[in-house]
Design a protein around this nucleic acid. Structure first.
Lengths: 214, 214
DNA sequence: TAGATTGTTAATCGATTAACAATC
DNA sequence: TAGATTGTTAATCGATTAACAATC
């Protein structure tokens, strides 16, 4: 249908719209104008309308937007109407926590397996799913049509593991390892660099304190 | 000294510079030009020079940048030359994982306590630190001069807890709860919305697949 | 119909890139 | 000194905001 590239700035805002619209829906609110949404979300009404119009018109002139419809449409744009097979690589603290904590199934992410290369962990169960040895990863990815791998392994091994995943047909990597992965452009990577995020926080804390005295 | 506001776009890039410079330093490399760094990091040399010059000149014309000096200076800008007292609120999967997984001390983040409101967890030890009841939080924050609170609690209670932290002098919140906290502008908030990040990934996976057929 | 609000074009603002003079 | 590379100004590009015509 369309081929125009939508900027990542817009994409980054979609999950937030989705969240607010979900809450409005749960409150039983049926319609909302860009003006009202603007007030709630603290972004300009203009930006809201521009953002939505990247994907075609979801609203009605003189009326506004139907909350439920808009919610559904944004969900579809984000790919939440499909299911995605997901595995976790690295069953350390973070890997186990994500397996337990994320309500993956709720949004169509099917948690299919968790892998580690520590033999002491083999067979241990995380959410009714036993930890598998890393060597089984390649076959597993192919046989279970895994789309997404969550990388919660040390940065030293991340690139090598990523390559093995790519070679076996993975489509996207949710990367918690503290490196910039070197994978083909066709593989989508979303980085979560936690320590970077914490550094931004300390910058802003210090900036504010300095700002007070000058 | 200076009062000009530096854009968050620049700040977001600093931790990545810091990481690469740290690696170069560890490899024993003493000097680097913006050109060379550009090739390694895949950003333009122009942007590198612009970014650094927001904070004054760190380089030498005709020579380039001294790796170690630049590394130290960026660390200072990010506030990593100071120590920050940090507590974790919420000792669930994610809270415990962060306590164990993050090497907080390495960057001057002193892990001082972890709190929960589940009595079954009271006294349980996480990294030699026993889980404390939530009621003790206020006094603890004041008495131990806590700067940063890591919020790993459900979104329903996040705003109320944030208010209590703010009232007791917290400076920054590292927020893993899936809400936009309503706190004064003087309190710095850094959000880590994991499910938003995962949605961006699926958008990009789907976009790429669609792109292939059109 | 009149009022409201979108969709969309135009104007503004900010961030990135290019160019080059300053200088080590 | 000549060559290299920064610091900085100018040009470009993209994203946000404002304005308003289309239309429900």
């Amino acid at each position: 249908m369309e081929n125009k590239e939508i900027s990542q700035a817009v994409i980054s805002r979609l999950p937030r719209y989705f969240r607010y619209l979900g809450e409005l829906k749960d409150e039983g609110i049926e319609r909302i104008s860009s003006q009202e949404l603007s007030a709630i979300m603290d972004v300009t009404a203009s930006q809201i309308r521009q953002d939505f119009n990247n994907f075609g018109g979801f609203g009605q002139q003189g009326y506004g937007y139907k909350v439920e419809y808009l919610y559904e449409e944004i969900g579809k744009i984000l790919g939440l109407d499909r299911t995605h097979n997901l595995i976790i690589i690295g069953a350390g603290n973070l890997g186990q926590a994500l397996a337990n904590y994320m309500n993956f199934e709720r949004r169509g992410f099917l948690f299919q397996g968790i892998f580690d290369n520590n033999p002491n962990l083999y067979g241990k169960k995380i959410r009714d799913m036993e930890i598998r040895p890393m060597e089984e990863m390649e076959n597993f990815v192919r046989e279970h049509n895994i789309d997404i791998a969550v990388l919660t392994i040390p940065k030293t091994s991340a690139d090598a593991v990523a390559r093995r995943l790519v070679d076996n047909g993975i489509k996207g990597i949710w990367n918690f390892a503290h490196v910039d992965l070197d994978v083909p452009k066709s593989i989508q990577v979303e980085n979560v660099h936690l320590s970077d995020s914490l550094m931004k926080l300390t910058y802003n804390i210090n900036r504010f304190e300095q700002g007070c005295y000058s």
